[in-house]
């Protein structure tokens, strides 16, 4: 039988109410993730990947941000209806996040020990000594050599890769069931990225958590993800199992992404870039948001916003190329 998803995001809308207009940063995102699964969220900058993650964690600053619609079901319970206090106990405990920018979760003026002990004691009733032992165990787990002595170090005394390991250790302190990793390797060099990806894979096997891997790198997606959601302008445009996505991509935006990557085996004379730019999220074009950049756009694409549909079993696409004529509705 199919496993029940641990986290389900349904029709999530997060908007920012700014002086210059309403930024529809996340505008109808739906996906689910099963225990032990790695789900990729891939898309270009500003497509709403981080805001999706921060909405799940209820970390959107209000004002200017507001989750205006949707549900985030964690084990069947809607996180958007939880009190601030309930969220604090869920965050970092059952759902944890590794941020795009390491310095947003590590405080530069405190030692790693202080920060880890504090996080552990927020969620667990343990003595300081027990918390320190747990911190050592965690640093060991993520492969930081001579963990006990490194506890006394400040974040800046670690290399980029080691800092990312510390962040992962911090995120894992309370055995989360879902780990949201927002571009965890983007700032790292390839040899260190290879280590961190290997680490995450090992940790997932050992601890069995579900990972939401946010990335802009299709290489990382291909390597670690089971299923992938491609986002564009705040909306999911394609969602399927990873090999299906690479073997049979359906959305013109996904096609564009794939042909934009420089290939070493087969050096292109010129990259086939997607022309134009992502739309202004305060003033989305009518119809399909990708239409102004889409090589396959038809007249109706500028009028009708395609629905996100399972056109092929287990493969969702948001594109009018796959809609039957009579099915076209808004």
């Amino acid at each position: 039988m199919e496993q029940e998803p641990i986290l389900q995001v349904e029709n999530l809308h997060t908007h920012f109410f700014t002086k210059s207009g309403v930024v529809k940063a996340v505008d109808g995102v739906s996906f689910d993730i099963k225990p032990g699964e790695t789900l990729g969220i891939v898309g270009e900058s500003g497509s709403g990947k981080s805001i999706t993650a921060m909405s799940i964690m209820r970390l959107i600053k209000d004002p200017p941000g507001k989750i205006v619609d949707g549900r985030v079901l964690f084990k069947g319970e809607n996180l958007l209806e939880k009190s601030k206090k309930e969220m604090r106990s869920i965050r970092g405990n059952q759902i944890s996040m590794v941020f795009q920018d390491p310095m947003t979760s590590l405080n530069p003026v405190f030692t790693v020990e202080k920060q880890m002990v504090e996080t552990i004691q927020t969620h667990r009733k343990v003595s300081k000594k027990e918390a320190i032992d747990r911190a050592v165990e965690l640093l060991d787990l993520v492969g930081i050599p001579s963990a006990r002595s490194r506890l006394k170090s400040y974040p800046h005394e670690f290399s980029g890769g080691m800092r990312q390991r510390v962040m992962i250790a911090l995120a894992l302190s309370c055995d989360p069931e879902v780990l949201i990793a927002d571009e965890p390797t983007t700032a790292l060099d390839v040899t260190i990225q290879a280590q961190i990806l290997e680490l995450l894979e090992r940790l997932q096997k050992e601890l069995g958590m579900a990972i939401v891997m946010i990335t802009h790198d299709l290489g990382v997606v291909a390597e670690v993800c089971d299923r992938v959601m491609v986002m564009y302008a705040g909306k999911p445009v394609e969602f399927s199992e990873v090999t299906e996505l690479f073997d049979h991509p359906k959305h013109p935006y996904t096609w564009g992404l794939m042909s934009s990557i420089p290939q070493i085996k087969n050096r292109q004379d010129r990259l086939e870039a997607i022309s134009g730019l992502p739309p202004d999220l305060r003033d989305l074009p009518q119809g399909c948001s990708f239409a102004p950049r889409c090589k396959h756009a038809m007249d109706k694409c500028h009028e009708v916003d395609p629905a996100f549909r399972e056109h092929i079993p287990a493969h969702h696409v948001r594109c009018l190329l796959y809609e039957e004529k009579e099915e076209v509705t808004t």
Partner: peptide, 22 residues
Amino acid sequence: LLSAIPEADPHLKRDRMVLEGD
């Protein structure tokens, strides 16, 4: 370095040369 590049091909199973340490 070259063997560590993640490639956009989920079918690829490679013998990666993962360097130890920092």
